[in-house]
Design a protein around this nucleic acid. Structure first.
Lengths: 164, 164
DNA sequence: GACAATATAGAGCTATTAGGTCTATATTTG
DNA sequence: CAAATATAGACCTAATAGCTCTATATTGTC
């Protein structure tokens, strides 16, 4: 039988808060890039976005929901419905997009929850290093707009043109 | 029954290559920081390191093995054995440490395997952005040395002094 | 030479997450 | 009303993080 609180200093690792630049972010950027290249406020159905940018349809639904909740896109239910960019393409940056579909951008667990994650943070020699790294990354991504990577044609179309 | 290669363009996500600044990296840095504060080439047993820096002992063994394979520490088997820093503390940087215990520093899957991970990389509008972000991070970490975060006393000791 | 203390090698374990799929429901247009 | 859409959310699977544990090889001390 082990003691209940065997080591109160040992931090419980919360991976759910860690950075993950994976498919979800990729797909979100693809979808937004496509919308960004449309005439302003133009509504595009999810099927069109999914097909042009090769995104799994149902998965994209969930992602678009996140983007709508975050106020990056407007959704239009019903027939002839779809999505449109809620703001100017130049005003939407990649840090926002990441945080809309994932979570607050956090390089390592110790930098989460207002610095009270690890019991040693008061005497930690490395935390400031990771903190600075995280700021570098966040600031860089905050400076890249969806407008700067707009994609009118979509990945599929441009790849096909390249193949032929 | 589905077709075998249902979508050859859809990239298979290889999370094993993605960045993860987690416990393993934390523990590796703690151990190296402790060694860095010792007299040069001084051999410290793993029990001492593990206790002073509060690292799970068996888990640390695996980590030290990685650090030894990477040439960052020398290991000394047998009685009175242990580990010592293989190079000057100032010459060991955090990028090396990360890659010694994890894998090559890769922000997202598309930046792995010489850019041939995703079928769309030839026409991708976002890959260069992530590439630049990855370089920013890698360069920053490559500029931080273990020597600059050396820790003679260890986390436990310094925290106890703070508590009292 | 035996013994104790160490590192090495590697199997195995559990909770969680990534990356989806699927169904049911509410909403809108023709 | 019917068809096409978005929304909500349950559910699934493979892989991973973060360990633990056992067995073995190596070395210093008596």
């Amino acid at each position: 039988m082990q003691e209940a609180a065997v080591n109160s200093h040992r931090a419980t690792t919360d991976r759910s808060s860690l950075m993950n630049i994976g498919r979800k972010v990729d797909y979100a950027v693809r979808a937004l890039s496509y919308l960004a290249a449309q005439p302003q406020r133009w509504v595009v159905g999810s099927k069109e976005i999914a097909e042009r940018q090769d995104i799994p349809t149902h998965f994209m639904s969930k992602i678009m929901k996140d983007l709508a909740s975050a106020g990056l896109v407007d959704s239009h239910v019903g027939r002839k419905g779809g999505f449109s960019l809620a703001r100017l393409p130049e005003s939407i940056n990649l840090k926002e997009v990441y945080e809309a579909v994932e979570k607050p951008l956090t390089l390592m667990a110790c930098l989460d929850r207002g610095h009270r994650c690890c019991a040693y943070d008061a005497v930690c020699t490395q935390i400031s290093v990771w903190e600075r790294a995280q700021m570098l990354l966040a600031d860089y991504l905050a400076g890249i707009s969806i407008g700067s990577i707009a994609d009118r044609e979509g990945l599929k179309g441009r790849l096909n043109r390249l193949d032929s």
